[in-house]
Amino acid sequence: MTVETLFALCACALVGIGLYGLIVQPHPLRKLVAFNIMGSGVFVLFGALAMRGAAAGMAADPVPQALLITAIVVAFAATAVTVALLLRLIESTATASLADEPPSGD
């Protein structure tokens, strides 16, 4: 098995692991970590595809690699906004629960 296939398969598993965490972990911060793991799985998959595309004297297709840099920065921005939201939520309600408010009026 080539190194890119190995890491591509590894990336698929990472996506699965991240998805599991996103569904199951109740705390928003843990969901965020799981999202980052899932995201990194997608990135590694893209990186493996880039390496499959090595040609013209380049060790890898540069287009996906450039897109990856953008995607990593976007994921960081997402993490920053989510962390700020979470901290503000904890500050103002002292809980981090995502559960729905008890229905009003019942």
Binding site: V3, E4, F7, L29, L32, V33, N36, S40, F43, V44, G47, A48, A50, M51, A54, A59, A60, Q65, L68, I69, I72, V73, A75, F76, T79, A80, V83, L86, L87
Partner: peptide
């Protein structure tokens, strides 16, 4: 290993470093 030195640097700096710092600060 995936021949992405640029991505490796970005990942180490932003994906691992800054994201890690954010999460550690939050936790």
């Amino acid at each position: 290993r995936l021949a992405g030195i640029d991505v490796a640097l970005t990942e180490a700096a932003i994906g691992g470093g800054l994201t890690g710092a954010l999460l550690l600060g939050a936790v």
